[in-house]
Write a protein that binds this DNA or RNA. Sequence first.
DNA 1: CATTCATATGAATAATTGTTCATATGTTTA
DNA 2: TAAACATATGAACAATTATTCATATGAATG
Lengths: 121, 121
Amino acid sequence: MEENASALEQCDYMHLHDKVIEQVQEEMPQEEILYDLAELFKVFGDSTRIKILYVLFQSEMCVCDIAQLLHMSQSAISHQLRVLKQAQLVKYRREGKTVFYALADAHVNTILNQGLEHIEE
Amino acid sequence: MEENASALEQCDYMHLHDKVIEQVQEEMPQEEILYDLAELFKVFGDSTRIKILYVLFQSEMCVCDIAQLLHMSQSAISHQLRVLKQAQLVKYRREGKTVFYALADAHVNTILNQGLEHIEE
DNA sequence: CATTCATATGAATAATTGTTCATATGTTTA
DNA sequence: TAAACATATGAACAATTATTCATATGAATG
């Protein structure tokens, strides 16, 4: 978790040209952005959540239906939907006792597809 | 970790039409694919690794240069490069004592960019 | 308003993971 | 071949996390 220094004893000289070093520091998104980006991908990094996203890609769905489709407990799904909701990957609407979840936007699908393309080499 | 059942007491009836259920089961990638997909995104789900990828996007680079640029220890970077290598996100070549790492393919950049687009709403 | 149903949530636990430290491996050079 | 350097790796530890269990909240219905 610590991304602190202690970078005391590194290699003798850098292989990089000054120009590259400068460019890296210039092109590199801000620390906070990079952190948020990692947080976002962390959300995709769980197979239960991936399944939920795929299921919602077919249709809006209530918590209980998702649980049954994935053979998992209502509580587990609800906890994960919370994570997806916080990452703004899903949205929801209430209808009486029931809460329906749906994908929030199109990025979700693009990201999943790029991932698929990669693992299929 | 357990994605087992215990889905005994769910809601009384399903809101979904049979057609949707059928389609979900049809369109859903195989269990193993979904697992691999989660594994891939898990790799993106760490800010140190994200930084390494961004840095390598500028230029091929040796372990030690990366460590200095990111103000982290050689060991930490090496461990993370191992993870990136296993996920086939980076490739490497040896030149004497030095090992140079580079991005493996173009998907990496697409995935990162989609992620960025999402967090920038 | 009490009951029932759907969902959310807090605490607890087991499993996973990122970094450090110490050390091993592999390569060059004196 | 010994020393120096660049990288890799194993063990240990702290921190994070996914699920379960028990229970709370919120809405409909008798």
